[in-house]
Design a protein around this nucleic acid. Structure first.
Length: 679
DNA sequence: TCCTCGTTTGTTTTT
DNA sequence: CAAACGAGGA
């Protein structure tokens, strides 16, 4: 591809966004305005014109999948091999970059470079142990491990350490001291066990740069061109990264859309994009406002909904395309009826049996179940994105814990997870004793166990049966380490699964076949790695790693399917036909979000906006007038967002409109617009 | 230590 | 409607 062909099919602002290589640049890219195209062209442009070399670029994407695709596309445009010199160009999520940098300089923080990355389950178990050991919590009904982890994670996203917790960081002043204490204890436990959570991957990098000027200079000088995608979803720490790295050369380009900010619950700051021009001097702002994706009606509906938010940046999407068909609003009798409608509708539209144009977008992953069932009945193939993840399954996590044990001596959480999995007679009592010994000696649990079995003065602390079992366990780990060294990670996993008795224990499980299949998939993935650490890192950071929900047939992977996705996971995707389902009060906007005030409601609206703008040709909105939520039957009202769409572009289907809010509802005498009626 | 059964509980989104 | 928890018996 020539340099000209990189730009000759772009519109004026797109062209400018690609060719403005130096200085601070903010590209406000509306939905469907060709953002991905601009990003890849820009990267290719930098390289094709030899503005810089691949290793001088740092490009941050929101998911690792996006990173992989972008690297491939850029390489393809330049006619290069993505594994050649292109592999020196850093593209990935903030978290994967953080992990990469931290492994390089772990020693400066007092860590080993093979540190483990914890997931939320690990975090919760750690906090739970910690709280129990240190005498509980005064208001323990409120401070569940989950909430504690959330709170600590939010602090980390904001760059606040355990010693900086002031009264403004806590809801109730009397919690302050205890919370800071737990946070501090948590950080100490992480360090002791050589592990980091997601927040650490970002924050520890900042600490590293703050305390080691040479390293900050190293990365500043190395990355001469910085690019951040989805800038509206960056948090304070990520902002600080860019602020520091851009000092000097000032070549920072951020791309985003304030209307698509949907991750505030993860610490994202809309302020980052709203204040960019003030934070970085002489910023050039480029607006991509022409939409190439959706029909006029879809765009109009989406714009109309999002216009109800306050404090948006000045930006108006437009299209040259036709208005297209009206939107369809289907009011279903029940959630089952809603799913049935979607399945039937897909079947009648997919005349040639091509299911790829269709997607079903849900607010919560629980909603997918009914749609999976309905599509199943109609024999429609589907794939679930962002549902229950492959890596989250119990058997996969068990296997990973075994591998973590093999990779690291200090991974106490992994030890506790698998010490009695499968059952080997090592219950809470034994673990409690080992923990005591571990605290006394300062050794990790595995080493404490070694000590307890080897030394006579410790032997009497457990029964012979437990001792023998523990010896077998330790031998298993040692043998596996040997296997790892001699024959690689795949062989090590096979050895573990057989000799731990884990595979055998699945015989009696009623999901045994499923579980074995998942483990095989994991093993297949592991075969592609030569280093166990590299594999474990991917496993922690790449959510869709093993092609989680991919359905396979004898002919290979099935590619013809309906996509079912959560709204969050649908960011960046597009489909000719979109079913936005469960468009109900307390679902979208979600109940949990509504108690957090106006800003949370606005985020729900942005979520609806993201969903609507995924559609190219046809957009269905559906709501159920009855559904079962945990124990109860609820009768949801249609979402307030529906009323924000011009009526003339909606075609109503399903049960009559007479029950809709605002009409008064003959029998119910429903007077409040958003009341939540239960029976 | 393990297993089972009844009870409680808490419900969003994910790197 | 789960999964997590606690009690009590084998």
């Amino acid at each position: 591809m020539t340099v000209h062909s990189l730009i000759d099919d772009l519109n004026t602002p797109q062209h400018e966004a690609v060719t403005t290589t130096d200085g601070f640049l903010m590209v406000l890219a509306g939905a469907g305005s060709g953002k991905t195209r601009v990003l890849t062209r820009r990267l290719a442009w930098l390289l094709a014109n030899e503005v810089c070399r691949p290793e001088e670029i740092l490009a941050v994407t929101f998911t690792n999948k996006a990173a992989r695709e972008m690297r491939e596309r850029v390489a393809e445009m330049l006619g290069m091999d993505p594994t050649g010199s292109m592999s020196r160009f850093w593209i990935g999520t903030f978290h994967s970059m953080g992990a990469r940098i931290l492994r390089q300089h772990a020693d400066r923080l007092g860590y080993d470079s093979n540190f483990v990355i914890l997931d939320t389950g690990d975090q919760e178990r750690l906090v739970k142990n910690l709280v129990a050991e240190s005498g509980g919590f005064a208001r323990n009904n409120h401070w569940t491990p989950r909430r504690l982890v959330q709170t600590i994670s939010r602090w980390k996203d904001d760059g606040v350490g355990p010693d900086q917790i002031t009264e403004k960081h806590v809801l109730f002043p009397k919690d302050r001291v205890r919370l800071a204490e737990i946070y501090r204890g948590y950080q100490e436990a992480l360090k002791r066990t050589n592990s980091m959570d997601f927040g650490d991957l970002l924050l520890n990098c900042l600490m590293l740069w703050r305390d080691n000027e040479d390293l900050l200079d190293l990365y500043r000088n190395r990355f001469r061109y910085l690019l951040v995608d989805e800038y509206q979803d960056t948090n304070k720490v990520q902002y600080q990264w860019m602020k520091w790295l851009a000092t000097g050369h000032r070549n920072l380009c951020v791309v985003g859309d304030d209307d698509q900010s949907i991750y505030s619950w993860r610490g994202a700051r809309l302020d980052n994009i709203l204040n960019f021009s003030d934070d970085f001097p002489d910023t050039k702002v480029i607006r991509l406002e022409q939409n190439y994706r959706s029909t006029g009606n879809i765009l109009r509906a989406a714009a109309s909904v999002i216009s109800n938010n306050d404090g948006r940046m000045d930006k108006t999407l437009w299209t040259e395309g036709e208005p297209g068909e009206p939107l369809v609003l289907y009011s279903a009798q029940s959630a089952e009826d809603e799913a049935e409608f979607v399945a039937t509708e897909i079947n009648s539209r997919a005349s040639v049996g091509d299911y790829t144009p269709f997607s079903i977008l849900v607010r919560t992953s629980r909603q997918t179940r009914l749609f999976e069932e309905a599509l199943g009945i109609h024999r429609i193939p589907f794939q679930v994105v962002g549902g229950l993840r492959f890596m989250e399954r119990a058997e996969v996590k068990d296997a990973l814990a075994y591998l973590r044990m093999t990779a690291s001596n200090r991974d106490d959480l992994a030890f506790e997870r698998i010490i009695n999995q499968p059952r080997r007679g090592l219950g809470p009592t034994t673990i409690e004793r080992l923990r005591d010994l571990s605290v006394q000696t300062g050794l990790p649990l595995l080493e404490a166990a070694r000590l307890a079995t080897a030394q006579p003065e410790h032997q009497k602390m457990m029964r012979p049966a437990a001792r023998n079992s523990l010896i077998r366990f330790i031998t298993l780990i040692d043998q596996t380490r040997q296997t790892l060294e001699q024959s690689g990670p795949r062989a090590a996993l096979d050895y573990l699964l057989v000799h731990s008795g884990y595979l055998e224990s699945l015989e009696s499980s009623d999901r045994g076949d499923d579980q074995r299949e998942n483990l095989q998939e994991l093993a297949a993935k592991l075969s592609q790695y030569s280093s166990l650490t590299a594999f474990l890192e991917e496993a922690a950071l790449v959510s869709d790693m093993a092609g989680s929900n991919q359905t396979e047939s004898e002919q290979g992977p099935i590619t013809n399917f309906v996509t079912i996705s959560t709204l969050h996971a649908a960011k960046g995707l597009e489909f000719p036909v979109v079913f936005l389902v469960g468009v109900e009060e307390e679902m979208l906007p979600h109940k949990m979000a509504m108690k957090d005030g106006e800003h949370a409601l606005e985020e729900e609206r942005r979520l609806a906006y993201v969903g609507m703008t995924r559609a190219r040709e046809k957009l269905y909105l559906t709501c159920a007038r009855q559904r079962f939520l945990f124990r109860e039957r609820v009768r949801p009202l249609p979402s307030r967002f529906i009323a924000e769409i011009p009526k003339e572009i909606i075609e109503n289907k399903g049960i009559g409109t007479r029950h809709r809010r605002g009409v008064g509802g003959g029998r119910g005498g429903r007077t409040t617009a958003y009341s939540w009626r239960k029976r």
